[in-house]
Design a protein around this nucleic acid. Structure first.
Length: 417
DNA sequence: TCTGGGGTCCTAGGACCC
DNA sequence: TCTGGGGTCCTAGGACCC
């Protein structure tokens, strides 16, 4: 059996933990630059605020309905996530962190009452962190996802935990679940399925295997097996990332090369720090630029360049040099850029690195980076950075930012008695 | 005026190998 | 008229996820 644990309206719940007056009130959390709605409390969902809604189009609704608006506070959400995940890891020897607010637990070979166990972890997480969660438990990951959906949809009946442990429950769940809500069936596949009359997950599992393989490849076939109770999507237990990206939409359109270069160096530095944190070296780096995607075609230019490094490295100095090299190759002065990013990929373990006979990362950088990381970690910000980085990091509109209550000492809440 | 960010996996097709 | 067969590796792009 597998459990899928999902935090309810995670970002909104994080804000509530440190501001209980928000309980029961509609909340939305906005993306960087206060651009789009990326999280909503149940109350905000009921008011009809869609996911991804551009904030400026809903400004009046926010005011009229007294919706509390927050700028994204990722240091807070990341730290709260870490706390939730660490509690959940005590409930199974195998935990897969699937996203910032979700994780799978392998409950196989455990002689327990699954429903009782799910409710126990729910109470535990809520008591220790203040974050409400829902639990779905079933024989496969895809069915656990479906069970979780049922737990969320019917809180009165399920108390926030639903177990699919019989054939009757499995069939009932699949006949209830809309095909587009099945984990792994996206918009494209849903449209294809609708076109041939498939409406429910139950219709999907009854499609001939040949059709599924042909139209949805092996991913679709695995999904079909999973929904039929045959585990076909393994637990992913390795917690090292296979790629690390830092990308940002700018507060305004930019065309100045120097300014863009500063951002690219900063993005590279942020990626490199994460890379070192997971003890990896990278072999490839991608740099991309994007013009405003809401403008006319003739003003758009979205170049990217993939650079194969001559040696594996995690040195910010070396990576930044390669990134700027790449930027020079794709930058054209006649366009206005709205977004840019750096992606590191093709990693290997730092401990298992086999040096090359001819080209290698500067060995002195290893201890230099370690010192810089230690100092920056101590001060919780980049007090040491490259001279070529932008001084204020990245400017963003963050009009409604809450405190970093758990990661910044000045923001810790003071209780007066 | 304004419209996010960070991931994973799969496939087709080209380059290259013998 | 007709020009082999069977592999692997790499890459770009698409689809999906939160």
């Amino acid at each position: 059996m597998y459990a899928l644990v999902d935090c309810n309206n995670f970002y909104a719940s994080c804000e509530r933990v440190f501001n209980p007056s928000l309980v029961g009130k509609p909340i939305v959390v906005l993306s960087n630059n206060d651009g789009c709605v990326i999280a909503r409390s149940n109350e905000a969902k009921k008011l009809g605020i869609p996911m991804g809604a551009p904030a400026y189009q809903y400004k009046d609704t926010f005011e009229k309905c007294n919706i509390r608006v927050f700028s994204a506070n990722f240091p807070l959400y990341g730290d709260m996530s870490r706390r939730v995940m660490s509690i959940l890891s005590t409930y199974s020897p195998q935990r897969e962190i699937y996203s910032i607010d979700e994780c799978f637990l392998n409950l196989s070979d455990m002689d327990i009452d699954f429903c009782e166990y799910g409710l126990k972890m729910k109470a535990h997480v809520e008591k220790w962190t203040g974050i409400p969660i829902s639990v779905g438990i079933a024989p496969t990951k895809a069915l656990a996802k479906a069970a979780n959906r049922i737990a969320k949809k019917f809180p009165e009946q399920t108390k926030g935990c639903h177990v699919i442990d019989t054939e009757t429950k499995r069939i009932k769940a699949l006949k209830w679940l809309d095909v587009e809500d099945v984990w792994g069936i996206g918009r494209r596949n849903a449209a294809k399925l609708r076109a041939i009359g498939v409406r429910k997950a139950w219709d999907f599992v009854n499609l001939p295997q040949s059709w599924v393989l042909k139209s949805m490849t092996v991913a679709g076939w695995n999904l079909q097996k999973e929904l039929n109770g045959i585990p076909s999507i393994p637990m992913e237990l390795i917690e090292k990332k296979q790629s690390i990206a830092t990308t940002r939409t700018f507060d305004a359109e930019k065309d100045d090369f120097e300014e863009i270069r500063e951002h690219i160096v900063t993005f590279t530095s942020m990626c490199a720090e994460k890379l070192r944190h997971q003890h990896s070296l990278c072999h490839r780096l991608m740099v991309f630029l994007e013009t405003n995607r809401f403008k006319d075609m003739d003003k758009r230019y979205n170049p990217s360049i993939l650079i194969k490094l001559p040696f594996a490295t995690c040195s910010t100095l070396e990576l930044a040099e390669f990134a700027v090299d790449g930027l020079k190759q794709i930058y054209k002065s006649r366009y206005h850029y709205k977004r840019a990013g750096v992606v590191l990929m093709d990693f290997e373990d730092a401990d298992e690195y086999q040096p090359s006979l001819f080209f290698n990362s500067n060995p002195k950088h290893k201890s230099l980076m370690a010192k810089i990381d230690a100092i920056n970690h101590k001060y919780h910000k980049d007090v040491i950075r490259l001279g070529s980085q932008d001084f204020n990091r990245h400017k963003m509109y963050q009009e409604h930012l809450s405190g970093q209550y758990t990661t910044k000492i000045e923001d810790v809440i003071v209780v007066e008695i």
